[in-house]
Simulated assay, not measured.
Amino acid sequence: MSTPEPRAVENRYARRDSNADAQRYSLYANAAALQAQQERLRAMAALWRAHGWDNLVDRPLLEVGCGSGGNLLDLLRLGALPGQLTGIELLPERATVARAALPEPVRIVQGDACTTPITDGSQQAVLAFTVFSSLLDPGYRQQFARTLWRWVAPGGGVLVYDFVVNNPHNADVRKVPADELRALFPEARLHARRLTLAPPVARRLPAPLIGAASLLLHPLRTHRLTWAVKPR
């Protein structure tokens, strides 16, 4: 019998080198990670402004797979209110770090998103950043997408940031092609932007050159930010 997908994800993360991950994704120590975060924030704000959102005040926002809370902190910096934010994280140790890092009104839930009691239609946006690529079971990917879609209010959307290419050095993740996103969210209007210079390339560059290289080397961008909008 195959391992249920949430447990399989836990097992895959348990195999990873947490110290190496901390260095690889540190905004302080890794200029490539900082550039990717800033580029993603600019694109996210641009997508939402184009959607007609002048600000994030009083908009309920939820992130699935919130990790240690970095993206939720970014939402606060963009103007979201703590009491309107929810983070769901499967791994207990990461949920604990997020709880310590974020203001108390931010709700942090530890567990499987598909069994978390979130009211249907209650969220203006649901974020899933490099989550779908970690779900290797196609059936669970579909269940996960249906769950997130239920939570979104009409006129809101699901914001997906994920790989568009496979990582040859990491068999624990799988790319999320545009065609698959269309199949996962068949009712949505999709607005997408290609982002993030391939990290192995970006890490080799001097920090001042990473941003310019990301603009010039568009074919080497490895991720896509997709805003899947639910019709009103």
Rank of each mutant, 00 (worst) to 15 (best):
N170A: 11
P60Q: 10
A183S: 10
R99I: 03
S2G: 03
R204L: 12
V173A: 02
A98V: 00
F163Q: 10
A80C: 07
D162L: 01
I108Q: 02
A14L: 05
T130R: 14
V173K: 00
P186I: 01
A212L: 15
P154G: 00
G121N: 05
R94W: 08
W151T: 01
Q37M: 13
R150N: 11
D112Y: 01
P200K: 07
G211W: 01
T115S: 15
A100V: 05
A202N: 02
Q110E: 15
G87H: 03
Q37H: 15
R150H: 10
V164G: 06
L62N: 04
L102A: 09
G52L: 08
V109F: 10
R16H: 02
L90V: 03
D54C: 11
P219H: 12
H51E: 13
A100T: 09
I88K: 02
L216G: 04
L181Q: 15
Y140R: 01
Q35W: 14
L78D: 04
R189G: 06
R40S: 13
M44G: 13
A95D: 10
P219C: 12
A207S: 10
R232S: 14
L159M: 14
T196G: 06
P200S: 05
R107K: 14
A213I: 01
T86K: 13
A125D: 02
A22Q: 06
P60N: 04
L216E: 05
A171G: 02
L76I: 05
T115I: 13
L148I: 03
R59V: 13
V9T: 04
E89R: 00
R77C: 08
R189L: 11
G211A: 09
R99N: 04
H218D: 14
S134P: 02
E93S: 08
H218C: 12
H218P: 00
P92K: 00
A14G: 07
R204Q: 13
R107Y: 04
E104N: 14
L90P: 04
R12Q: 03
W48K: 05
P117G: 02
P186A: 01
A145D: 08
A100Q: 13
E5S: 04
L181G: 06
R204Y: 03
A125M: 10
A36W: 02
L148D: 07
P138A: 08
S18K: 11
V158L: 03
W151S: 01
A46N: 08
L127G: 14
A8E: 02
E104I: 07
P138D: 08
A32G: 05
M1D: 12
H191N: 11
I88E: 06
L181K: 05
M1P: 13
L41W: 09
V173I: 12
Y161Q: 15
